[in-house]
């Protein structure tokens, strides 16, 4: 049992990691078959994982209802919504103009859009509260942010055609330089963590730590 929990996953990670790494440099047919074989496996495993999700969801909310925990009414709604959606989907399919399609179109879509739309309010409020020029660097950031914000919508063009050009310059030069710095650092860190995982140095992700 200990072997299955500790050593075996590390060995599996090493073998699979090295195989996929070496495969990158082998153009032969076998290499391609291996690659698409593994990707198909991954698709199948991901599909099965949904079962865990459903079990966890139901277990969590049923527990809440059983214990009459605070806000258990929401759990009841979650379970009912879950069951009715499955039934509607199985009976009438999920295409447009079916009951499930109707729920998707007229309930799910507006609720989702509402959540996303709250961003506009949060951005306005956060900008008002937190976007302050407390230092010279912050002032430079503030000015750049304001120019990009106004220069990339039609009203910026209306005020001055140069605003848009300047906003594009900020996006394509200073912004990109910063992004590249972060992306390069992240890429190297990702390779390092991949090396650590393949060689079994980093195992916290398997549980049990070191």
């Amino acid at each position: 049992m200990q072997f299955l929990r500790k050593q075996f996953p590390v060995m599996l990670a090493f073998v699979m990691g090295m195989t996929m790494f070496i495969r990158e440099f082998v153009p032969a047919k076998f290499s391609e078959r291996l690659y698409y074989g593994f990707t198909n496996w991954a698709i199948v495993i991901t599909g099965f994982a949904a079962v865990f999700a459903i079990l966890s969801l139901l277990h969590h909310h049923m527990n809440k209802v059983r214990r009459r925990a605070q806000g258990y009414g929401y759990s009841v709604i979650t379970i009912l919504a879950f069951i009715q959606m499955i039934i509607l989907g199985l009976v009438f399919s999920v295409e447009p103009r079916t009951p499930a399609g109707w729920e998707y179109q007229w309930m799910f879509v507006p609720m989702q859009a509402t959540m996303f739309a709250t961003l506009a309010f949060f951005i306005a409020s956060a900008a008002f509260r937190a976007f302050r020029a407390r230092t010279w660097e912050a002032l430079a950031l503030l000015i750049a942010g304001l120019i990009v914000m106004i220069g990339r919508v039609p009203i910026g063009e209306y005020i001055s055609t140069h605003l848009g050009t300047f906003a594009d310059w900020i996006m394509n030069n200073p912004n990109m330089a910063g992004f590249r710095g972060i992306v390069l650092g992240v890429a190297l860190a990702q390779v390092a963590i991949a090396v650590r995982i393949i060689f079994g140095i980093e195992r916290t992700y398997m549980g049990g730590g070191d």
Binding site: I45, T46, A49, A50, V51, F52, A53, S56, T204, Y205, M206, G207, G208, G209
Partner: peptide, 13 residues
């Protein structure tokens, strides 16, 4: 869902 199972193991450990 896969992150869920791994996270449970990690916290348990």
């Amino acid at each position: 869902p896969i992150v869920l199972t791994v996270a449970q193991e990690i916290v348990k450990a």
